[in-house]
Nucleic acid binder design. Structure first.
Lengths: 141, 141
DNA sequence: CTTGATGCAAAACGTTTGCAAGTTT
DNA sequence: AAACTTGCAAACGTTTTGCATCAAG
């Protein structure tokens, strides 16, 4: 039997495999931007019109609790999610509010090593997030 | 006449100097954490009970527009504000949700130079934000 | 006096919750 | 069959808005 990646991930973390969960996780895994709850809900409506907004909220919460996804920091009022497991930075366009991944292992290492060297008092760093705010050039909004 | 720092800052950016603005800006300038709207409102109530929540919202918006303060990225749903002008990082405690400044010019330089060297295509970096998520040690919650 | 800021209450928006019905294991 | 997930609608918390009143330049 041909199990999808999303199916595997759900069983791995001990969650029941349901249509809503498969669909929502698929969107997150495939997304290069960092969808808000509403982004996910809108996309879901096209392929799975039955799934409710409450389910999207609950599912994203469950996924975060089981570390399938992470919440990412944002200057807007709505939370954004990310299914990538490796640490990486973000390019955030202050004009369009788009948030793109910026994978650069050299930068990650640079910061990680620096932080390790510093050995900050009273704080145990678990996760580093670098956000580069600025403007996307040659974009149509 | 003895003009306060907050008074000066307001006139510098061309805003009328009012009691609510002076009080709100003072709180932001003196705060080491990164208050949410509600944090600011609660503090204001003690010294200036008349000021309304709507005024706090409007004032923080105005301050952001005039660059007196900045919004900072956060994984929670409420936005946080910061009056510091120099670039700096944040230590964010995932247990208590506290967000503390982490001033380290060496780290800022390190990242700034790296980014400059990289010359990212299609993106003009204006502002760098480093968030270190982890746990405050020896804290009572 | 003119312009802009404030307070109030209502509206809009985003998120959470309880529970009955439906699915997965 | 037991345990968990979903959808609905209501509740909740946060942010925005319009307008009449008030304060600053």
């Amino acid at each position: 039997m041909n199990k999808s990646y999303t199916h595997k991930r759900l069983t791995e973390v001990g969650l029941k495999v349901t249509q809503p969960r498969l669909a929502i996780l698929k969107i997150l895994v495939e997304s290069k931007e960092h969808p808000t709850v509403d982004d996910v809900y809108s996309k879901i409506q096209k392929s799975h019109p039955g799934i409710s907004l409450a389910t999207v909220y609950k599912t994203l919460e469950t996924f975060t609790d089981t570390s399938l996804i992470k919440k990412v920091g944002s200057r807007e009022s709505s939370i954004r999610y990310d299914a990538r497991q490796d640490s990486h930075s973000h390019l955030i366009c202050i004009k369009s509010n788009k948030m793109l991944d910026f994978h650069d292992s050299e930068l990650n290492l640079l910061i990680e090593e620096y932080i390790k060297k510093k050995n900050i008092d009273n704080f145990e760093v678990q996760n580093i997030e670098v956000n580069l705010y600025g403007e996307l050039i040659n974009q149509k909004y």
